[in-house]
Amino acid sequence: MKYKTEIVIEAIRLKEAGVTTSAISKKLLAPSSTINEWLKKAKQNNLTAENLRSLSEQDIEEILRPRSWSRQNVILPDYEDLLVKASAPKMTVQNVYLQYLASVPEGCEPVNKATFYRELKRTKELASKELQDVCLLNSFTPGHMCMIDYSGDGVCWRNKNDGSVKTAQIFVGVLCYSGLIFCTATNGQTREDWLTGITKMFHYFDGVTDETWLDNSTPLVKNADKYDPDLAPEFSNFCDYYNPLGYAVEPGKSRHKALVENAVKQFQDRILNHLNKRSFFSIEEINSAIEPLLVQLNKSELIERPGSSRFSRYKEEERNLLRPLPLIEYSAHSKVMSRKVHPNNQIRLGNVRYNVPWGYVGKELLVKVDTQIKEISFIDPSDGEILTTTKI
């Protein structure tokens, strides 16, 4: 167990100043039982906060260890490593303890179950943010969830027509299991921009997750609520089309979307800095510049997983577990329906009949009506091929 030296010293200093144990526990976010054990050990060894500052973290750890650990033949668990394993789906603390027992060499002693459970719990309570993030990453199942957000920092570009300077907004998404990151520039953060970003993200992932998590952004969420947020109708329609469950996280719970916040930070550190050194004259130019930098980011080796990258984890463990994409890409201005071809090689929409290619009589075709460009497309549902288009 690696103790945070500064936390231990601060707990003892506060106690010396007359602060109650419960108040110390609340301030340091450590359980009262842990605080009491530190204080007891410090008293037994005649240690003050000032004394402890002269000791190394290893010395403090040795002092705070339970007596039973002092035996030479006891094999101590690596609690931080086992905590990561315990956070995996369908893994229990009992299973992790059994794995630890199996790893103890013959002739050596393991710590007992009560000690193991207590110290693993303490490790979780005092885990660093980095360790918490690793545990969070380890807890997701492949293909189950992605998270989305916008970066707070955009990219400036100059309009060639009027010379005006505009700021492109950066949509960011992440596959929670593999950590694969996606980002794209949009004109703003309107509802249409959000839905365009999600659509491009799913096509970049080459599949759809079971759930899509986001914060309570007003373009997609009408009314934020802890238990039952009210999604905007357009976003609900989008979710019906691609079939993920849209989930707006509880307001104020930033840890619920920590992975996408980290993905935003990765974009800002690894991509945005490069973009800011260049001049752009369109959103398309920005996205062309993002593409190779995004590939480099996703293929870079992960510090917490040597020999592995976001892309390798996605390719080997997650890609094939995503839901298939619909044949027709979503558009907020389009409606897709299925219609049967009549014997005269025509499809009827309302009171209008449209001709389709020969050979499809009696078969169902997909009909895409785009109200923005005022166009109707007739599509073969077996392969997504557009058979013919006509203006409305």
Rank of each mutant, 00 (worst) to 15 (best):
S25Y: 00
I373E: 12
L14S: 00
S300M: 11
M145Y: 08
H256N: 15
D59P: 06
V264Y: 07
I12D: 01
L325C: 03
A30T: 11
L220A: 11
D240H: 12
A224D: 03
K26D: 14
K335D: 14
L365W: 05
A248R: 00
A185C: 05
K257A: 02
S70Q: 14
T141N: 13
L136Q: 12
I379M: 10
H256L: 13
P244C: 13
A88E: 12
V369Q: 13
K160E: 13
Q189C: 12
T5R: 04
L365Q: 11
Q268E: 14
Y3A: 02
D206S: 06
F267C: 04
N355D: 07
T389Y: 04
Q58L: 11
D383F: 03
L272G: 05
L82Y: 07
K315L: 13
D370W: 02
S282R: 11
H274K: 11
S308Y: 09
K121V: 07
V221I: 05
V104R: 10
E329L: 10
I376F: 05
N344P: 04
Q189A: 08
T190G: 12
L47R: 02
L272A: 04
G152D: 12
S282M: 08
P324R: 01
A88Q: 15
E285I: 09
P306H: 08
K222P: 06
T190E: 11
I290D: 12
D215K: 01
S56L: 04
L214T: 11
L325W: 00
P142T: 02
L39M: 07
P105F: 02
T209K: 00
Q44C: 11
F311A: 10
F281W: 05
D59Q: 15
T34D: 12
L120C: 08
D230P: 10
K226R: 15
V264S: 05
T212S: 10
G107I: 01
Q44E: 15
H144M: 11
A49R: 00
N243E: 13
I290F: 15
P306D: 07
N112R: 02
E80N: 04
I328Y: 05
Y247E: 07
T184N: 10
H274N: 08
E16H: 00
K4W: 05
S32T: 01
